[in-house]
């Protein structure tokens, strides 16, 4: 399964099937800090991802001071 990470943009291969929660755990990512996007929709934590899926892990934390 292809996983796209942002800021900076990079890709990793992860063996599916795997649940969203397990995927984030495997990559050491806090659930609060990303959205998992497949196609043009969001996938919830308990969703299963197949080996031929392609998902984007989009960070949601922005840091501007003003």
């Amino acid at each position: 399964m292809q996983v796209v990470l942002r800021n900076p943009r990079r890709e990793v291969e992860i063996q599916g099937p795997i649940s969203v929660v397990a995927l984030l755990g495997r990559l050491g990512i806090n659930r609060e800090s990303v959205l998992v996007i497949k196609g043009d929709t969001i996938v919830p934590g308990d969703a299963m991802l197949d080996d031929d899926d392609c998902v984007e892990l989009r960070p949601v934390i922005s840091g501007g001071a003003a």
Partner: peptide
């Protein structure tokens, strides 16, 4: 913050995901 990002995805609003380099 996570809900606002989700809101944009669901509404099809294209926003800048990249961070300001000064941040």
């Amino acid at each position: 913050e996570r809900e606002m990002a989700a809101y944009c995805v669901v509404r099809g609003i294209d926003y800048i995901v990249e961070e300001c380099p000064m941040a």
